[in-house]
Structures are given as structure tokens and as C-alpha cells.
Nucleic acid binder design. Structure first.
Length: 585
RNA sequence: GGUCCCGUGGUGAAGUCUGGAGUUCACGCCGGCCUGUCAAGCCGGAGGUCGCGGGUUCAAGUCCCGUCGGGACCGCCA
């Protein structure tokens, strides 16, 4: 039907007769004998000149045949890739009339209520931005596959109907028709299967895996999402990191045209100390400053005896923060778990080089801070008049977390601004926090994660200090994915289970179908999984993964286009042996 | 489960704090004019359950209560 696409035509095509198919983006009529029709398809827009009366409206589907010619002097449109040429002597065939769309099919729809965009997603996707996002996604998928194939990974598909597993995210359940009252679960990840593929001798497995988790949705979380899932045998951490890096860097190059530099590494401990989070955004400063020693013998009650005292210095922004905003910062700090937040506005005149000058703090607690302490704060944070210093004193983890959150709130640029800063976070703790019910440590990654060999001795004596061979990949403050080297020896697995408070009977009951196969010869192995939606969103310059998913759900898990979810049909329910309870009051 | 923001012709906004006739702006839509425009221009027109329900009031888009929908976040996401 067509000889070219709407974004193809250039001066080199002048003189050729072409046929274009697409949607009418705009129509500019100048009386009966001259009209401009901008024709759009996924590749772009071309201006077509019609010298007859023509009845086309916005979004009509048409085929236009004409001759490519240079635009007359002074009418070139530099804003359009095809702007040096136009198609003249046009014959227009209307293939399908169209109702006026509910919103303009161009960048103006960026401002339209997202619910309406989702209700008419097929129109939203017709727009340049969304077409670009779909194609960035396709390019990333393709590059990732190619990188995995190059490295001798074998694509294996794992089932979507799996047994429910006790740990981890809430699962979607699928009722069994043949066994009423029994259910499949949809996989929150192919974790168990991929490790069994290692037992099976597959050696290197990968899959573009759809994962489903029935947890509340966020800007970076949907019920269903895609992971590059992979697992390797007879490897250590460096091998896994290298293989994943190849895929991620190839994907980045495919999306942006530029291959990023090798991905740097940082320990979890350093990330927490410097950035207060385990997914640091390295694009900006505002790093945490250590002050615990400064207040070792302080008279200030809020700081005395605190496990950890840290600060961030927000340069030059003291004046922005009135009492109201400072109260909001304090509320935010409390929301994260802090007992309070100390703020100091640095006042006065900085001294000449080497001189202290006449510098003070404007703060409700200024009178509790000694001159020596004040000088140490200024020296360590580098604070000068006009700066806002925020201090938290609490246990180490809370102090880091609160300031890390404030750091992000106060300094984090939009995700598409500035450079891409990839970083591996390594040496995560094996255990994180304590289970309120059992009083036992909780696994940081999952219960099959290998402890760091240097720390194995402390599993029993000092479990909370044991590091693991688990690692995360982080890009511009977003967690892209995580992985670990797995335990393949039963003795070590037993010790970790014991630390977790899982008895042998529990282990057999909960994980038996998974662990028994290891008895037939599990190779040392490890793997990784990273979220493709998140990677694509950042590479496409989007703040929200819904923008890179063709048909996403809203925050409440609904699809305004299909109206899913819908009430169960009584016949279907009966066949499945299900009865719906009335909503609890 | 919780906190905060939003809901006004097809679309986006103003109006809400401080109650007084569905008022306004831009885009779109319909009709007319127009031979070089390009998010064309000019003239005219149509289009509304102010998300929904209740309350206060002589009077509610505006105040109060509830509810539904959307978004950001906390919890949750081994």
C-alpha cells in the first residue's frame, strides 16, 4: 500500500512518486484549492499538499499518493525532520474515517489526566513519546537477549502456574478446576526453577521472565513486570557481575547510542555511611557527615549516648526553610523512624582565610551545643553562613536511613537529568532486622544466599555482622535488580536455617521440593535478576514505569481500558468450587 | 492499613480560602471565509448532573460529613 513511511522523505527523494499511509495529524485549509495535510505514522510526519477540496479530519486513516518536491523558498520547516520537502499533487484515499479523539495525539496529551490516557491507551500509544518508549523497550530487550546469547546463556521458559511458596511477596492465586479448593500461584519470580536448572546441568540459564506480585503499586512497581532472570554454574560473584554488566551496558548502548563506562562497585556499608540508603543516587552530593565522636561527651541530652550521629549540609538553602518547612522535614524524619530532627541555620559572617569569623547557629537547640562542638560541626560539614545543617542521632541504621531519605528529598534531580550513574552494591548483610514473631534474624536477600566466606565463623556467635555474597545493581537511585551466590552445601544451609530459626522439619516442609534435588548434586552457582521496566524507564527518560508499559494498571490495580478486574461470573465460580463472601463491614 | 494532593463542557486550567444566576481563558468540535500554512488565520455557533450522596443555609462549584476515582508517599515489595 505504501512506498515509504511518513518520516522517511528527504531532499534525495525529490521527483519520485510516493504513497504514504497514516493518520491525519493536522489539516490546514486555505480555501477550496489549497490544503495542507500533515500525515503521521510511527516514523514521523510529512506535509502533503492537496489542491482539491478534501474531506479529511483529525485522525482519519488515509493513503496519500503524490510527488515529492522541495518546499518553496521560505516555507522550509526546520522543526520537522522531513521539513525540507513536501508531497505535492496529492490524491487522498480515506481508508477509515475517525471520530475526533478525546485528547490531542501529540505532546499536549502529556498534560492530560493519566486515567483518561489509560482509558484510551491505544490513542495515547499513537503519540511520538509513547512510540519512542515502546521502541526503546524493544531495543533493550533485543540487546539484552543478544548479550546473553553471546555469553552462552540458554533461554529456558519456566511455568506460570506454580505452587505457592511461603516466603516473600504476596502471590496471585489461580484456582484449580480439577481440584476445587486447591490453587496455583503465579510466580513472583522463577527463583526456584532457575536453581533447579543449575542442578539439571544447564550451566547458564536466562529468561525474559514475567513476574507477578500482589503488592501495592508505585511509580516503579506494577503487579506484573519483566525481569532479565539469569543463573550460572561454577562461578563466583565477579563472573555474575561481569555477565550482567555486559547485558546492561549493551542495553544502555542500544537505547542511548552510548556505552556507559564500566560499572563501579561500592560496599553496602559504604553506601549506607555516605548516602544513607542501599540504592544511592550518585549524581549529586549532600553526603552524610559523621559526627558521633564530636558529641561523645556532650551535655545535649538528645545527642548524649546516641549510637550514631550524622548530618547533612544543605548548602545555601537556610533562607528557603521557614518554620513550616522545617516542621515538615521533621515530620518526614519521624515518618522514617527518627525520634527527631535537629536543624541548624548557619548565620553570621565567614572569617578571613584561617579565621573563625563570627559564625553562629540559628536553631532552637543552639544553646545546648558547645563552642567546640559547633566548630567541629562547621569543620566536618564544611558549613558556611546561609547553609542548613540537619542532624540525626539514633541507632546507626535509623540515622543513616533518615538522613538518606532527607538527602533524596532535598537534592535528588529528576531521573532523566544528568549522567547515568550505575553502581554495584556488594556485601549486603546476610540478615536484616529481627522477626517480631520469632525473635530471629530475617534473611536480607533470601534464605539460600551464601554468607561471605570471611564471616562464616560468626553465623552463630554474631549473626547480624555476617556479610553475604549478595549484590544489587543501582542506577540513579533506582534498584534495578539483585542477586547472590547461592548456598550449595547442605551443612552451610543447615547453619543458616538454624540462625533463621527454621528447624529441619520446617525446612523440609517449606523448601523440601526445592532442596531435595540438591542432594543429587548441586553445582556451586549464583545468579541475578533485574527489572527491565525500570531500566527502560530510566533510559527513556521517564519517571514512571507505566510510561514504558503498553497497557499498565493504575495504582489501585485496575485497567481503565478493559475495566479489569471484573466480578467473577457465577458459572465460572461454581465450576471452580468458589463462593464470594460479602464485603466485611 | 495510613498520610498528603487532585476531581469544573471533549481536553487543560481559573473560580473554592472570603457562599450570591454555570462565570472566565486556552485548545478541541460544528458552520462560514480564506492559494503557502505548519500546534495556520479571521468571523459565528454548539457543548455542563462543577465525580457521586447527604447535611448546613434564604442561597452551595464554593462550607461540613461520607463515598468513589486518579496520583505521590509510608507500611508492604524474602
Amino acid at each position: 500500500m505504501r512506498t515509504h513511511r511518513c518520516g522517511d522523505l528527504r531532499p534525495e527523494h525529490i521527483g519520485t512518486t510516493v504513497s504514504l499511509c497514516g493518520w491525519v495529524a493536522r489539516r490546514r485549509e486555505h480555501g477550496e484549492h489549497l490544503a495542507f495535510v500533515d500525515l503521521r505514522d510511527h516514523s514521523g510526519i510529512t506535509q502533503c499538499v492537496v489542491n482539491d477540496d478534501v474531506d479529511v479530519r483529525s485522525e482519519y486513516v488515509v493513503r496519500i499518493t503524490g510527488v515529492v518536491r522541495a518546499r518553496p523558498e521560505g516555507t522550509v520547516n526546520p522543526g520537522l525532520p522531513t521539513g525540507e520537502v513536501e508531497v505535492g499533487e496529492c490524491v487522498v484515499e480515506v481508508l477509515r474515517r475517525a471520530d475526533p479523539p478525546p485528547f490531542p495525539i501529540d505532546a499536549r496529551a502529556d498534560a492530560v489526566d493519566e486515567n483518561i490516557r489509560l482509558q484510551y491507551r491505544y490513542l495515547d500509544l499513537r503519540r511520538e513519546r509513547m512510540q519512542r518508549n515502546l521502541r526503546v523497550r524493544a531495543a533493550v530487550n533485543s540487546a539484552v537477549r543478544a548479550a546473553m546469547e553471546r555469553q552462552a546463556f540458554v533461554e529456558v521458559e519456566t511455568p506460570m502456574l506454580v505452587p505457592s511458596t511461603p516466603e516473600g511477596a504476596r502471590e496471585f492465586l489461580v484456582p484449580s478446576r480439577k481440584e476445587p479448593g486447591s490453587f496455583y500461584a503465579l510466580p513472583q519470580s522463577p527463583q526456584l526453577f532457575k536453581q533447579l536448572l543449575m542442578v539439571a546441568g544447564v550451566d547458564r540459564y536466562y529468561q525474559m521472565a514475567r513476574c507477578l506480585r500482589d503488592e501495592d503499586l508505585r511509580a516503579d512497581r506494577q503487579y506484573e513486570f519483566m525481569q532479565l532472570d539469569m543463573e550460572m554454574s561454577f562461578v563466583g560473584q565477579d563472573d555474575v557481575l561481569h555477565a550482567v554488566s555486559e547485558a546492561v551496558l549493551a542495553a544502555a548502548e542500544a537505547a542511548t547510542g552510548e556505552r556507559p563506562p564500566p560499572i563501579e562497585r561500592m560496599t553496602w556499608r559504604e553506601s549506607m555511611e555516605r548516602f544513607g540508603v542501599d540504592k544511592p543516587d550518585l549524581r549529586f552530593g549532600l553526603e552524610l557527615v559523621e559526627l558521633t565522636e564530636v558529641f561523645a561527651s556532650t551535655g545535649f541530652k538528645a545527642f548524649a549516648g546516641a549510637d550514631s550521629i550524622k548530618a547533612i549540609n544543605v548548602p545555601g538553602r537556610a533562607a528557603e526553610f521557614g518554620r513550616n518547612q522545617l516542621d515538615k522535614l521533621t515530620d518526614r524524619a519521624k515518618q522514617i523512624g527518627a525520634k527527631g530532627l535537629v536543624w541548624l541555620k548557619v548565620t553570621g559572617e565567614a572569617g578571613e582565610a584561617g579565621e573563625a569569623g563570627d559564625v553562629g547557629f540559628d536553631s532552637p537547640v543552639a544553646k545546648f551545643i558547645s563552642d567546640d562542638e559547633a566548630a567541629a560541626i562547621r569543620e566536618r560539614t564544611g558549613a558556611v553562613p546561609g547553609d542548613l545543617v540537619l542532624i540525626v542521632a539514633d541507632d546507626w541504621h535509623t540515622t543513616c536511613e533518615v538522613l538518606g531519605t532527607l538527602r533524596n528529598d532535598l537534592g535528588r534531580p529528576p531521573v532523566h537529568e544528568g549522567p547515568y550513574r550505575y553502581v554495584w552494591i556488594v556485601e549486603f548483610p546476610l540478615f536484616v532486622g529481627v522477626d517480631a514473631a520469632t525473635g530471629r534474624p530475617k534473611p536480607g536477600h533470601h534464605p539460600f544466599t551464601s554468607p561471605h566466606p570471611d564471616d562464616v565463623d560468626r553465623i552463630e556467635s554474631d549473626p547480624m555482622t555476617v556479610r553475604s555474597i549478595a549484590y544489587d545493581l543501582v542506577l540513579n537511585g533506582w534498584e534495578l535488580g539483585s542477586g547472590s551466590i547461592r548456598i550449595h552445601e547442605p551443612e552451610l544451609q543447615r547453619r543458616v536455617f538454624t540462625a533463621l530459626g527454621i528447624s529441619e522439619q520446617d525446612a523440609a516442609r517449606k523448601f523440601g521440593f526445592f532442596l531435595n534435588p540438591f542432594e543429587y548434586g548441586a553445582p556451586p552457582h549464583g545468579g541475578f535478576a533485574f527489572g527491565l521496566d525500570r531500566l527502560v524507564a530510566i533510559l527513556a527518560g521517564e519517571e514512571n514505569i507505566r510510561e514504558v508499559i503498553a497497557f499498565p494498571k493504575t495504582q489501585s490495580g485496575a485497567d481503565p481500558m478493559t475495566n479489569a478486574p471484573v466480578p467473577g461470573d457465577p458459572k465460572q465460580l461454581a465450576e471452580l468450587g468458589l463462593r464470594v463472601l460479602p464485603p466485611s463491614s
